[in-house]
Amino acid sequence: MLENLEELNLSEHDEMEGEIPIGIGELSSLRILNLQCTRICRIQRTINMLHHLQTLNLRDCHVIEVLPEFPTSLTSLLLESNSLLSVPNLSNLTNLVELLLSDGSRNTGKSNLITGCNLWWIGRLSRLKRLDLNLLNFPTPSELASLSDLEELTLSHLALETLEKLPSSLLRLIVKFFRIRRAELLPSCLILSNLSTLEFCSGEVEDIPLDGLPLLENLTVHDCKLLQRLSIPLELRKLRQACVACCPELVMIEVGGLLKSMESFSILRCVSLRRVGGLNELESLKYLTVRECTSLESLFDASCTNIADDCHVDIQVCGDFIKDFAASYQHEIYSKRYGEMNFLDTSNKST
């Protein structure tokens, strides 16, 4: 009877520990096997007998050290383990569309991987559309450039010095826990004509070039501790949403004029930020949020702003003047009212 079973979901069962029974290979019709958040430490080689298996979920299986050979039928493989000792050779899984490989360093900041492992085989997975690599200090494989169908890519904790080029097919790119202080390699890597979403998180970088991204719609820059200036160029004519947060050394943000597509702009907890240039021209802006930027001196010139009357503005804890003013309107005000009051108040102070 079990030979007809197509889906087996054992996720979140802490009592699941030890080895997967050798009889797993007898579930000949199994298509989906979900073992997320279990304590299994070993997967039997008989799993390779599951010729119809398409999805194998091993997220948060932090006791697994090594892996057997998997059936070539797999289209989705999700693996995350703090105990992982080596990165398996997955060159035979040419049907994979989705792949997560994580040594758990995203949460722990450390890895048990044996040095010398590499991902030379990843270029053979030509059908990949979604790839998430979280491998501490692992060289970024140059073979990524050959994945012509890849649409979503997340790189966490990898050494980016070996990154040469990314596939132009990318629609979404997330880079986390990285170190490139002067972003010397980023310009050539970020010429991505189809990219719509870009996120930089927890990186040591002094500059983030944003040229060569004509279709970018969503931009997030978070916890980049060395970043001092950020320029959003006019070339990003499709940009609709931008969020800059927790960048303690950031002094200035410059927004290219006539970015008519920008609808939402958030700036949060950038304590050294003094100036945001170019906000005047954001005529399509619907939401402006600025919070806990305690060194902020100016946002826009209220006497000539093109920001729409119905733009929702939320400003909190941004220096004594703005903080007190925002508080009197319960932290939520409209741009024209804010602009007029700000401009008049500045005039009064000068007399």
Rank of each mutant, 00 (worst) to 15 (best):
R59L: 07
C201W: 14
P167C: 09
P88I: 02
L67F: 12
I307R: 10
N95L: 08
S347M: 13
L158K: 07
D149F: 15
D310R: 14
D301A: 07
L85E: 10
L173V: 01
E65M: 13
L258W: 13
L5C: 10
S146P: 03
T75W: 04
F200L: 02
E204R: 11
E152I: 15
E151H: 15
R291W: 12
S193C: 04
G257T: 11
S111P: 07
G319E: 03
S295P: 08
G109T: 05
R274L: 00
E19M: 15
G256W: 06
L133K: 03
I40N: 01
M1A: 12
K336F: 11
C311Y: 13
L227V: 05
S148P: 03
V244L: 11
L239G: 01
D301L: 11
Q316H: 13
S111K: 06
W121D: 02
I24W: 08
C270R: 03
F70D: 02
P139T: 00
T72G: 00
T162C: 08
G212K: 06
L230A: 05
A308K: 15
C117L: 09
C243K: 14
N218F: 12
E184G: 06
C117T: 07
D207S: 10
L268P: 00
S11C: 12
A242C: 09
R45A: 07
T55Y: 10
